[in-house]
Write a protein that binds this DNA or RNA. Structure first.
Length: 294
DNA sequence: GGTAGACCTGGACGC
DNA sequence: GCGTCCAGGTCTACC
């Protein structure tokens, strides 16, 4: 069974797939050679399924199990549109980008959308697992998290969905630490899952694009394990570009781009992007950085 | 508001 | 093979 998403403006699946490293993290699976991906997730009913997303001249095509009913299809369509940042309008950004040589490739390639997971819970957990570790560490922790706590596909048990808050809330810190090697991050993720599962915290409501960015940032910073860098990264995923995710890599490349490689702090990074106003986060994310090996 | 130290893991390195 | 050091953000206590 196929769902066809017809884009009304230029859209590049290839660009969004390569917008950041999420495609390398379970339960995403990049299908090499076809510029497509598969993703294992759950319906609201709890059923685990795997969808496949590819691009054809007619639009974005989502492959689903044949027995899915109309309601299931509507749910999947909404999920995929969220993951592909389908409704974000980048026309104003492209107009700005066209005037800057380091950004001119974006309108040409219709880049600028950033791949999201199906749930904000998944994106928050993954973002926490990018902090204070190497990228290989993030890949390892996410894979172990999915392998040990994600629900498996009924006919292909090797395929697992990302664990839901409910899946995690019932475990304990010791099990999380032992089975996933999350280290000191384990209690943060356990607390988040328990707060969501108990109804104390409605994380998914933060997908609402009517919430002011400053308020959204405050809500994200209130999550243990989410600091300024993680909050800014999550705001980028949510389509809010007013903040810069400044990590050690940012300090390095911004220094090399504008400060002759001298040691800099967050203020210098902010200053470098100040002129881009509310688009600064997106400008930073897609800036064509000078090759460090040149 | 700013700062120092602890947190945890895996990888690099020296022996 | 073993021990040590380091890198990576955030939290907490303290000033």
């Amino acid at each position: 069974m196929e769902i066809l998403l017809k884009n009304t403006s230029p859209f590049s699946l290839e660009s969004i797939i390569h917008s950041h490293g999420w495609i390398q993290l379970a339960p995403f699976h990049y299908i090499k050679g076809s510029q497509a991906f598969s993703y294992t997730t759950t319906l609201a009913s709890g059923e685990v399924y795997t969808l496949k997303v590819c691009q054809k001249p007619s639009g974005i095509v989502v492959n689903l199990p044949d027995y899915f009913g109309r309601e299931d299809q509507i749910e999947v369509e909404q999920t995929v549109k969220w993951m592909l940042a389908w409704d974000i309008d980048l026309s104003d950004f492209y107009a700005l980008a066209a005037q800057e040589s380091k950004l001119a490739h974006l309108p040409q390639k219709t880049s600028g959308r950033i791949l999201r997971s199906a749930s904000l819970f998944e994106d928050v957990v993954k973002t926490i697992l990018t902090t204070n570790t190497s990228w290989s560490g993030t890949i390892r922790m996410v894979q172990a998290f999915v392998d040990h706590f994600g629900k498996s596909h009924s006919s292909q048990p090797q395929l697992r969905a990302f664990p839901s808050p409910e899946d995690i809330a019932g475990t304990n810190e010791q099990a999380l630490r032992a089975q996933t090697r999350l280290g000191y991050r384990a209690p943060y993720i356990l607390e988040l899952a328990q707060n969501i599962d108990s109804g104390k915290f409605d994380l998914e409501k933060l997908k609402n694009n009517k919430i002011p960015s400053a308020e959204l940032r405050k809500e994200l910073l209130a999550i243990k394990g989410v600091g300024e860098y993680a909050a800014a990264s999550l705001l980028l995923l949510l389509g809010r570009y007013e903040f810069l995710p400044i990590d050690s890599w940012a300090l390095k490349i911004v220094s090399q781009e504008w400060y002759q490689g001298n040691p800099i702090g967050k203020k210098e990074v902010e200053a470098a992007f100040e002129k881009w106003g509310n688009w600064k986060g997106l400008v930073y994310w897609f800036w064509n950085w000078t090759d460090q090996n040149e």
